[in-house]
C-alpha cells in the first residue's frame, strides 16, 4: 500500500488559533443561527457516549485528478455535496482555519436542527472540523484526498462521541449511526459524480475506540442542539408567516 500526501509542513497557518468561545461572523437571512455563538468547542475528551472512528472513502475511478484538486473542489462546494435540505453556511472567505460555520440540518418532523462547526485545520489535501457544545457529536471530522494503488481517493474520517445521553440513546438504537452513515455515503457519491466519476461506490469502516461512556459529561444535555432547535421552531414559523420588511 502506498499513500502519498503533500502537506505544507510547519505552516502555522494550517491550524486555527485557540478560542474560548465561538462566534459566527456571518449568517445569511435564510439560516437559523442557534447553538453556536458563545459555545465552547466540544473536545473528544468532553463527549458522553462511546468513541467511534468512522472512515468513509470513495475511489475516484475513471478520472485523473490530484488530491489537491479534489480538496480544492470539495472546499469550494462543500455543502453542495450534502444531501438535500442540509446546509453549511461559511463566511465568504470559505473553509479556512479559524472560520466558524453554521449548520442547518433537516430533522424528522420538518424540524431544522441548528448547530455549527469550527474549521480547526486546513491544508491543500485535507481539512478538519471540530464541533461545538450541543452538537450531536463531540469530536473531530477530517476530509482528505490521497493517492493509493494508482488511484485517487476522497475520504471522510470522523472521530466522534455522542455529546449527551439523548444523542447516545439515538445512536444505540441505530437512528443516529444510520443517518450519519447515509449522510456521508451520499456526500461522497455526490462529490464523485461532480468530479466526473460515473458510478462512485463509497465504502465504510467503523472502529469502536472506547466502549465506555463518560458519565461525568451527562450534563451536556443542557446544550442539546436538537432539543433547543425544537423549542425554537415556533419562532421560525412566526418569522416565516410575518417576515420583516
Amino acid at each position: 500500500m502506498s499513500k502519498s500526501e503533500n502537506t505544507p509542513k510547519n505552516n502555522p497557518n494550517s491550524w486555527a488559533r485557540p478560542v474560548d468561545k465561538l462566534k459566527v461572523s456571518e449568517s445569511p437571512n435564510e439560516a437559523i443561527n442557534l447553538n453556536v455563538d458563545g459555545r465552547k468547542l466540544s473536545g473528544l475528551t468532553h463527549g458522553f457516549g462511546q468513541l467511534w472512528q468512522k472512515t468513509y472513502k470513495v475511489r475516484l475511478s475513471g478520472i485523473e485528478i490530484t488530491p489537491q484538486a479534489v480538496v480544492e473542489e470539495w472546499k469550494a462546494n462543500f455543502s453542495k455535496f450534502w444531501p438535500q435540505g442540509n446546509n453549511l453556511y461559511v463566511p465568504l472567505t470559505g473553509i479556512q482555519p479559524g472560520e466558524v460555520g453554521l449548520i442547518n440540518l433537516s430533522a424528522p418532523g420538518g424540524l431544522k436542527l441548528s448547530t455549527g462547526v469550527m474549521v480547526i485545520y486546513a491544508d491543500d489535501v485535507s481539512f478538519s472540523f471540530m464541533t461545538p457544545e450541543g452538537h450531536m457529536f463531540a469530536g473531530m471530522i477530517t476530509f482528505s484526498a490521497y493517492e493509493e494503488d494508482d488511484g485517487t481517493f476522497a475520504q471522510v474520517q470522523a472521530l466522534i462521541r455522542a455529546n449527551d445521553p439523548v444523542y447516545e440513546v439515538s445512536f444505540r438504537m441505530g437512528f443516529g449511526h444510520k443517518s450519519e452513515d447515509a449522510f456521508w455515503d451520499a456526500t461522497l457519491k455526490n462529490l464523485g459524480q461532480h468530479l466526473g466519476v460515473a458510478n462512485p461506490q463509497p465504502t465504510q469502516t467503523n472502529s469502536l475506540v472506547d466502549s465506555r461512556m463518560q458519565w461525568a459529561e451527562w450534563r451536556n444535555i443542557w446544550n442539546n442542539a436538537g432539543i433547543r432547535s425544537g423549542l425554537y421552531m415556533p419562532v421560525v414559523i412566526v418569522k416565516k408567516i410575518f417576515p420583516r420588511g
Binding site: 510547519n10 468513541l51 472512528q53 485535507s126 472521530l159 475506540v209
Partner: peptide
Amino acid sequence: LEYMNSSGIGLLVTMLI
C-alpha cells in the same frame, strides 16, 4: 516533533483512551 496534523491529534486521542 517536526510537524503534526489533525490526523496526528486523532492518534494522540486514541493513545489517551
